[in-house]
């Protein structure tokens, strides 16, 4: 199995034409390199059948990354380790639910880690009133047709095109502020922009992403 993921860069680094993205959008969803994406998705499929070697590969690649992201986002070392382990456990348990048409492997694993992080924060600050998995808050209305592969494929394609049309600075702004929760001075530093403009850059990036998603109707 390729360990080429270190070379993966933000999708926007190599801007691609819409035509290219369209023709291979299944493989390009998320900011993942073709080939690598297909492999991770295939491995998740094998995990669904109980393949432990496939699981080991996923674990070795993703667990340290989940831990790294949690540390960046402010979790302490024990919590980050626990979320990383729990995330991979959930990958094992939910492998059969992974839908490679709708989401890239990394994006799917990201959402699992995010939900576990919310659960962990809730456990610490719980009021005692309610205890439910954050996952339930991200469920879609059951009225939504989920069986239409073409529609899911189109939707994934629209999202991939929009992400690939975002400039590198814009996707970095979104990533640093929302995903990694870095303070504004750090964002200013990484992007090389004045501190006073960070907030407006983030807003611009999100507005552009929304506009791009609307455009591709």
């Amino acid at each position: 199995m390729s360990r080429g993921s270190q070379t993966i860069r933000m999708l926007s680094r190599t801007r691609r034409s819409m035509a290219v993205v369209r023709s291979s959008r299944l493989r390009r969803f998320g900011n993942e390199r073709p080939g690598v994406t297909v492999e991770w998705a295939t491995l998740i499929g094998r995990v669904a059948e109980g393949d432990r070697e496939a699981f080991r590969s996923l674990f070795e690649h993703f667990a340290p990354r989940v831990k790294g992201l949690m540390l960046k986002a402010g979790a302490n070392s024990d919590d980050a380790e626990e979320i990383a382990q729990e995330t991979l456990l959930a990958v094992w348990r939910k492998a059969a639910q992974f839908d490679p048409v709708s989401a890239g492997a990394s994006a799917w694993i990201y959402t699992i880690a995010r939900n576990l992080r919310i659960d962990q924060v809730r456990r610490v600050a719980r009021t005692g009133a309610v205890d439910h998995d954050a996952e339930l808050d991200y469920l879609v209305d059951p009225a939504e047709p989920a069986d239409d592969v073409m529609a899911r494929n189109d939707e994934a394609g629209r999202i991939a095109s929009a992400l690939s049309s975002l400039s590198e600075e814009q996707s970095m702004a979104i990533r640093l502020s929302f995903i990694e929760e870095r303070p504004h001075p750090e964002i200013a530093d990484v992007l090389g922009i004045p501190l006073g403009t960070v907030k407006s850059r983030i807003r611009l990036a999100m507005n552009r992403l929304r506009a791009l998603l609307d455009e591709t109707k």
Binding site: I8, G68, R114
Partner: peptide, 25 residues
Amino acid sequence: TCRRLLRAVEGIGGAALEAIKPAAM
């Protein structure tokens, strides 16, 4: 419409996972 934007941000989350410096387990 909003779910599409959420999924796009989750895609950026996936990219962040790939780009982040791994932390040893």
